[in-house]
Nucleic acid binder design. Sequence first.
DNA 1: CTGTTTGTGGATACCGGTGTCCACTATTAG
DNA 2: CTAATAGTGGACACCGGTATCCACAAACAG
Lengths: 162, 162
Amino acid sequence: MTGVRSPRVRLPVLTPGPSQRLLSRTAEYALRATSCLAAAGGGPLTAEALSPVTGIPIPYLLKVLRQLTAHGVLHAQRGRGGGFTLARPPEAIRFTDVLEAVGASPVMDQCAFGWGKCNTREPCALHPAWSRLNHAFATWARSMTLAHVVRRQRPRSRVRAS
Amino acid sequence: MTGVRSPRVRLPVLTPGPSQRLLSRTAEYALRATSCLAAAGGGPLTAEALSPVTGIPIPYLLKVLRQLTAHGVLHAQRGRGGGFTLARPPEAIRFTDVLEAVGASPVMDQCAFGWGKCNTREPCALHPAWSRLNHAFATWARSMTLAHVVRRQRPRSRVRAS
DNA sequence: CTGTTTGTGGATACCGGTGTCCACTATTAG
DNA sequence: CTAATAGTGGACACCGGTATCCACAAACAG
């Protein structure tokens, strides 16, 4: 663009209501950005180009992209004509990979009571309930890839938790 | 107890690692507290008695219980012999009810891009993926009741999202 | 009535996720 | 080489979820 680094254009408010979400904002950002990259079809996209499309403010987007690059999900190219690219083909990048890269992958092994004595053999009262939800989420995150997003497809295995 | 209101006994740290979680801490607290109440089998429990069992600090536990009471999930009785009781039988209290009471019910209708133009007819790229996850969670929260927790049972309908 | 128990209500402090900023390095064009 | 482009790295500010505190009201025991 024309030299301006931070246009300071407040994009439309994303969450007008209560900000309660299943995934953290950062997690959503990471998935949005990688999805757009996948949709771009291999050509490098700069953070400046990605920002208006994803609705993520440039400085924070840069930070998220950096994390994804450091974890091998993206490839970064500096200088003119540079930008960010998927490090692997879309079908080889699972949601899990993206979420883990930004540290947004929920800790599954932790019990609702957070006590060491709780495990599968000696479960706490909420243990079965938790594991069901956790399993549902884990299955979803593992079965979905960026290719599914681009092609609007469903994963091979259905997401279920029971 | 013996007059001490806040024992100030730092219970074992619940989340040593990164605090990334599927449900917010408050949401977990609410489910823990109501589950214990359900397990108590009708008898009123004071916040002071509930705190060590659930691992929730008394002051915050009190606040959570207050929200649950205000939303009709619990019944509160003051004075000696008082405490908190389930307002309805355990099988009539769904996880959804508990989560909504503390304002921890994720907003389902919101798209990953947060843009108004995204709906079922004109979905954004991530829309199918989101709705699948959201639906899985909603089904889980609606099908589970406190009775399931006490009896360690599974809900009638399996949790699935597809 | 008096004192104790137990929940109520709101003000306040803390902390980590979220978002911003700036100086710097790498790459390419000319 | 020089200038412009574009990502890197880390320090810092903000804000809302989390947690604490205190004065008060209700209910019960004696």
